[in-house]
Design a protein around this nucleic acid. Structure first.
Lengths: 238, 238
DNA sequence: TAGATTTTTGGTCTATTGACCAGTTTCGTG
DNA sequence: CACGAAACTGGTCAATAGACCAAAAATCTA
């Protein structure tokens, strides 16, 4: 780490690897990158993720990452400008997998009621699948928040995720009406806030049975909210 | 940092300063502690908090803490067994202030509807008051989660906070009925999950106007939930 | 106030950290 | 196959980290 940079802990150098316009993990992020390089880069990302799971952001070092990735330490700095850049690339990497499970979960929904339920269940299962990764996700998000150059990543992550929910819900409402879409957005925000809070609770105070009940309660509450917002006309069947 | 300890980044030594039974900040945590010592200890805690706000958990060092606290570096280690112990003491310190604003916020509520609204507004205002401290709170909570010896702190923090909500709500229901109290707990969990998620959204993607709308939506949703759980019989006036 | 105890000081020690580079190997391609 | 570029190696370096300690100062007690 250099002398006191403008941002104490975050990425201080203008990050050449990641830019707001183009995801870091997008194919062809660099002009020239051979097959082997892509593999090594991938190894470093997954290795860093594994290392983060084991050690946490505060305990992570370039050496541990290199060890987990089974890659020479020098190679790490060949592929990533700095430790910061690598860590932020991992955050990006994690975000890519997030909404995939959501899109799959809501596929085939017949109405908004069903869609809300499926979306929340998909969100929950995705988190439940590996809670340690969830911790890393939160750690990295907070980490990105610290750096002026990376704050946009946290922002984009949340916006993208909300957008994914909005898109899912939009299939079952009049997507042409701007007022309706505003309400869909409000619903999506509340849905995501709820599930995020439940995940946080589960992390801090693990109790799967309780969390499942919370998710179920949340589903019903959100369906009621959708009715209140005029997104569903039919009475609640439950 | 020593060689690879059993917990990589967290407090590894059995923490002599904090125990599950007695809060770290409780008066008389040590058998003998003079007036000056207590003052210095307090200075270190607030200094560490300020340093954490400025640098984040990943960027924090004992020297920066000592500088913020205007205390000699050696003095830091005289009062706290390790950097870990100090950081966790800060988490404890933060938790103490949390439910105070809640208790004050809900005071004088006439019914559960009002109480839910006041509680959520109090929660939100507390967070809104200093969002940077909220970041620190999350950072430290995740930090505590990493150490086997400190995990209980994160757990206790959440349980205490939920308990505070339950206590507030319990004033407006039949607190003798176990079934009712179970539902109150479910309500409190959902309330806290929601507000936590909204705070997280505001941190990641700042938009005060949006967050206020979310809080408002959450209040209405939680009131409806309370009705669904049979905690409120009167129809929603809104 | 005198003596004992608590608290502070400032300097030091060792390990570890992120970064860097010159030289070597591997790879892709014409 | 041969050449240039890409990718990797292993070692090094300055900086910084947390911890520690002996002596000095401040504080408390009898």
């Amino acid at each position: 780490m250099k002398n006191p940079p403008e941002t104490p802990s975050g990425a201080d150098a203008p990050n050449a690897e990641i830019s707001p316009d183009k995801p870091a993990t997008a194919p062809g992020a660099r002009p020239r990158m051979g097959r082997k390089a892509r593999e090594t880069r991938e190894k470093l990302l997954t290795g860093a993720l594994a290392a983060l799971c084991a050690e946490g952001v505060t305990g992570i070092t370039t050496r541990k990452i290199a060890e987990f990735a089974q890659v020479n330490l020098g190679t790490l700095h060949y592929h990533f400008e700095s430790k910061d850049a690598l860590l932020l690339a991992v955050l990006d990497y994690l975000g890519a997998n997030m909404d995939r499970s959501l899109r799959m979960g809501v596929a085939g929904s017949r109405n908004l009621d069903e869609c809300i339920g499926r979306a929340l269940l998909a969100d929950w299962r995705h988190a439940e699948d590996d809670l340690t990764i969830q911790i890393v996700q939160y750690e990295l998000t907070l980490y990105a928040l610290r750096s002026a150059d990376a704050r946009w990543m946290a922002r984009r992550q949340y916006n993208d995720y909300i957008r994914a929910h909005v898109d899912a819900f939009a299939l079952h409402v009049d997507a042409e009406d701007p007022e309706t879409m505003r309400n869909v957005e409000r619903l999506a925000q509340l849905v995501m806030a709820g599930i995020d809070g439940i995940i946080l609770q589960e992390l801090a105070s693990p109790d799967m049975a309780r969390s499942r009940v919370s998710v179920d309660d949340l589903i019903h509450a959100m369906r009621a909210d959708a009715r209140k917002l005029g997104l569903i006309q039919t009475p609640d069947a439950t």
